[in-house]
């Protein structure tokens, strides 16, 4: 993945705040998973979150669309604060797309139906229009010919690209990626990363939990390193990789880049 191949013309970060997290804490029972998280995401940012397993990085992005509930602090997404109010939660979820490690496509629906379901039932888009949108995004992820197949007939990489298209069909303003390539064979990782890069080139606000450090270097404008439920270090990718400040970060980087 060379820097030169990436078109940065539209990758602009505006002053508008997309996500604001302040003093956020979360416990699983008595286990303190997220400790005093503070971060602000501007519109157009491409953030990569990394860290050892169990460091709370997945939990953090799952809090942003309330798949996990936080117990303390404040999360504001696109001006809507996440509370117990179901209306706010549904509003945030329809604005925030999410891509999962295990794709989570609906196996009883065709690819096209997977992509049109939420627009039709949540956004009340007419079926025909929803199908046109879905085909547009399926072409974008380069699998329009699979539209009438079922998820079980597709390879892992293709399924993940469908999952990205499914999220995009809701026209989200923010995309969350929860280890999107961790369940894929090496040769399929590239096709998914290429799709994500394309998305970044169009100026999408992205938060991505991943171990793909090449992707982080090429696309991200900020890398966040988490350990034991806390943000340990964050910086521009170049600085983060070449000049890590914290010992914890140095150890982590030496472990994942050392082999």
């Amino acid at each position: 993945m060379s820097d030169a191949a990436i078109d940065r013309s539209k990758m602009q970060i505006s002053d508008e705040v997309a996500i604001q997290i302040a003093g956020m804490n979360k416990w699983y029972g008595t286990f303190h998973v997220l400790r005093d998280i503070n971060m602000t995401v501007q519109r157009g940012e491409r953030i990569v979150i990394c860290g050892p397993s169990g460091s709370g990085k997945s939990t953090l992005i799952r809090c942003i669309n309330r798949l996990e509930e936080h117990q303390q602090g404040k999360i504001v997404v696109d001006g809507t604060e996440l509370t117990n109010d179901l209306k706010n939660i549904d509003k945030v979820r329809s604005e925030v797309g999410m891509v999962f490690q295990h794709f989570n496509l609906f196996p009883h629906l065709t690819i096209l139906e997977n992509c049109t379901l939420a627009p039709i039932w949540v956004r009340k888009v007419p079926k025909k229009e929803a199908e046109e949108t879905a085909m547009h995004f399926l072409r974008k992820v380069k699998i329009p010919e699979q539209a009438n197949k079922y998820p079980g007939q597709l390879s892992g990489g293709q399924q993940q690209r469908v999952a990205i298209a499914r999220s995009l069909c809701m026209k989200p303003r923010i995309m969350l990626f929860d280890e999107p390539t961790s369940a894929l064979d090496p040769e399929m990782i590239k096709e998914v990363l290429d799709t994500m890069i394309e998305l970044a080139e169009e100026g999408m606000t992205m938060l991505c939990v991943t171990h793909e450090m090449g992707f982080a270097q090429a696309v991200a404008n900020r890398v966040i390193f988490m350990d034991q439920g806390q943000i340990v270090e964050q910086n521009e990718p170049k600085e983060f990789f070449n000049n890590p400040k914290s010992d914890r970060t140095k150890l982590f980087l030496s472990q994942i880049l050392g082999h």
């Binding site: 999410m98 989570n104 496509l105 379901l117």
Partner: peptide
Amino acid sequence: PSGQYEAADALGLDYWRAQRLI
């Protein structure tokens, strides 16, 4: 798998729609 519930939630489907459709 719980992923089915999560995917339905993440797409903004409410409880009854998620149950009925997914």
